[in-house]
């Protein structure tokens, strides 16, 4: 804070002095900034494809403007039934993910924190982290081996016990459950790291004081641990809300199949099918742009609300 107050008095010579003194740090900063410029900012030039009639031979600047003042492809997208389905599925799957996947690591971190056998705790932690390192392609083949209606291990066991095979992967409603379940399984361990770190930062004296006052485990959890990690929770929640319309590609793509496309086709896989396989680059750039704009909107909203509620927000 003190440094920030100095800022306004910083003049040109001062800036040079700073640079001279800390040039190593600036040098370290250069690489990530170059990365951002090359891979994040430069490609933004091509956002204009969304408003133009795409051609592979012409440069972006020379492509003719699309019809309806450049908004032809946005109109086309919203008239496209597949896009509307993809939008709906993206929202549903992401909301379910948020609802079930967001609290999971918090609960896991709280439970881990209460374990008193250090060694057991470490083993549990390591096992919980592991799925994070598996790619979705591998997880989807595991899922096939386990959950296929005929050849899947789980269903074979169910059938041997006299039950009916459960269509984990081939019935739309069941598929959504499998999708969310696998997502939670893959990420809850890894995501709990942040919360564990936050818990470690809580002043132990608070717990001691609470014990003296006669508070039990749940009281301490509720009144000390949770409030202690609240800022972390809020920041992560805001970031997650910014992603409500975003979707990673590999998870739905690897898990989807023809029988569940009605619930499994999300925006990212729609863009892949229409844009890359169907050669409709303008249409899919328009969709991508729409997705980003809505994402930014959600992010700003969540941030604004959290500041209204007295939390810090992310900036």
């Amino acid at each position: 804070m003190a440094k920030q107050n100095k800022k306004p008095t910083l003049n040109k010579t001062n800036w040079k002095a700073y640079f001279k003194r800390y040039w190593q740090l600036y040098a370290l900063l250069a690489l990530p900034i170059i990365y951002l410029i090359v891979f994040k900012y430069a490609p933004m030039v091509y956002i204009q494809i969304a408003f133009k009639k795409y051609s592979i031979v012409e440069s972006v600047w020379n492509m003719p403007l699309a019809k309806n003042y450049g908004f032809e492809y946005f109109i086309k997208a919203f008239k496209n039934r597949d896009f509307i389905y993809a939008l709906r599925n993206t929202l549903t799957l992401n909301l379910l993910d948020l609802l079930l996947g967001f609290p999971a690591p918090i609960i896991f971190a709280l439970i881990l924190n209460e374990l008193c056998f250090k060694r057991f705790k470490r083993v549990v932690q390591t096992i919980a982290y592991m799925p994070h390192f598996l790619s979705w392609v591998i997880i989807s083949s595991l899922a096939l081996q386990l959950f296929a209606p005929n050849a899947g291990l789980v269903n074979m066991m169910i059938k041997d016990l006299g039950g009916e095979a459960i269509p984990f992967l081939n019935d739309p409603a069941h598929w959504v459950g499998t999708y969310i379940g696998l997502g939670v399984w893959q990420s809850f361990g890894w995501n709990s790291i942040v919360y564990l770190a936050a818990i470690a930062g809580i002043n132990p004296e608070l717990y001691e004081a609470a014990s003296v006052d006669g508070a039990g485990r749940f009281r301490k959890m509720w009144h000390i641990t949770l409030p202690g990690i609240k800022p972390t929770i809020v920041v992560l929640l805001i970031m997650n809300l910014g992603n409500i319309l975003g979707s990673n590609f590999d998870r739905p793509f690897a898990l989807q199949n023809n029988l569940v496309m009605q619930v499994a086709d999300v925006i990212s896989t729609f863009v892949y099918r229409f844009g890359i396989k169907g050669l409709q680059f303008s249409l899919t750039t328009a969709v991508g742009l729409f997705q980003s704009v809505v994402g930014v909107f959600f992010l700003l909203m969540a941030n604004w609300i959290s500041r209204k509620l007295g939390e810090r927000g992310i900036w």
Binding site: D82, N170, N258, L259, M261, F274, K277, G278, L279, Q280
Partner: peptide, 20 residues
Amino acid sequence: EGVGDTLSSKRDIVYDNAVV
């Protein structure tokens, strides 16, 4: 133009769902 692949994947979806 540009619909070939989209329509083929749709066709497979129609066929697969109808069979099962």
